[in-house]
């Protein structure tokens, strides 16, 4: 009867040998020596460990090759990042520069809201290896280093949030002109005209027809990206005033959202952050519907007569002709 055990024992080495020799297509080869990433030499053991962590948490979407084409990726509404590009949306560095490790940590631990990028519970102790492995996918990291961090100035509006929101509304529509070609507007045309004239001295005489909707913009990721409608969409990078400040100040890498830091004074950036935050608070509330209704029902607006008519009408926007 012993003979019946024989096939089993015969199979064993065969089985183990064949089992061990399959490697996922496209995955980086085994690491043999240290790799310099972002100016730091990373040990091969750390990268191999990073590969394990990556495979456990990231692989279904971002894929073995880091190309954002994992098994589960197809059909995702916000496509998973192609990590080979070395372009990242959310980081506290000027848009287009490489993020700092703290930015990776924030994105991995807190996720990107409204996407399949959830807040993963990768243990703190394993995060660094994972981040270095993620960097390995992008050749940029072997020659460049992370950008200078954009440090948030202290919020100058503490205790004066209502004032901040009011100022932010003006900056959003009048100074930063967010609604000109990207974001939806949240003010009447007359208001926007007035804000713009007040803050820049320029007269906005023409509006795009779909002023109250966002406009999909080209991006470096090969897909069009729709800027969020703050009263309807979740903000990917988080919706605390700090998160919003960061997104405004640093910009969104690879997209049309530029870096505003040093373009506008910090007071105004914070004011916009508070304003956007106030819009986010409307989400799924009757007030959002009311605002929408008010904008839809605003009286037909036509630009005031050319400048010779009068130079100092800085009154309310609805002081139309």
């Amino acid at each position: 009867m012993k003979a019946r055990g024989v096939p089993v024992f015969l199979m064993l080495p065969l089985v183990l040998a064949t089992a061990a020799c399959r490697r996922p297509a496209g995955a980086p080869p085994p690491f043999t020596g240290p790799v310099t990433l972002g100016g730091r030499a990373i040990a091969p053991a750390a990268l191999e460990h990073g590969r394990e962590v990556y495979t456990h948490y990231c692989r279904p979407c971002h894929g073995d090759a880091g190309d954002g084409k994992g098994t589960s990726a197809a059909g995702l509404q916000t496509p998973p990042r192609d990590l080979r590009l070395g372009v990242y949306k959310f980081a506290a560095v000027p848009a287009g520069q490489l993020p700092r490790d703290a930015d990776f940590v924030r994105t991995i631990r807190h996720g990107l809201h409204g996407t399949a990028m959830l807040a993963w519970d990768v243990p703190e102790a394993e995060l660094d290896d994972l981040i270095q492995y993620i960097k390995y996918f992008a050749p940029r990291w072997r020659t460049e280093s992370a950008g200078e961090a954009i440090v948030a100035a202290p919020d100058p509006w503490g205790g004066r949030e209502a004032e901040a929101v009011e100022r932010g509304k003006r900056v959003y529509h009048g100074l930063a002109q967010c609604a000109v070609a990207c974001h939806p507007a949240y003010a009447t045309k007359a208001e926007i005209y007035a804000f713009s004239k007040e803050l820049t001295g320029m007269e906005v005489r023409q509006f795009r027809p779909d002023l109250y909707f966002a406009v999909a913009k080209d991006s470096d990721y090969g897909v069009k990206i729709l800027p969020p409608d703050f009263t309807f969409n979740e903000l990917r990078g988080g919706d605390t005033p700090e998160d919003i400040y960061r997104a405004i100040a640093a910009g969104i890498g690879g997209t049309a959202m530029p870096t505003w830091k040093n373009v506008l004074p910090d007071t105004d950036l914070w004011a916009m952050a508070h304003y956007v935050r106030s819009l986010v608070a409307l989400r799924d509330s009757p007030e959002a519907g009311a605002l929408e209704q008010r904008l839809r029902d605003q009286p037909a607006w036509s630009p005031p007569p050319p400048p010779d008519a009068g130079a100092d009408t800085d009154g309310a926007g609805d002081a139309g002709p």
Binding site: A3, R4, V6, P7, L10, M11
Partner: peptide
């Protein structure tokens, strides 16, 4: 085929 192989092994044994 593994079972045929097992038969051959027994035959050899």
């Amino acid at each position: 085929a593994l079972h045929v192989l097992a038969g051959l092994v027994v035959l050899a044994a």
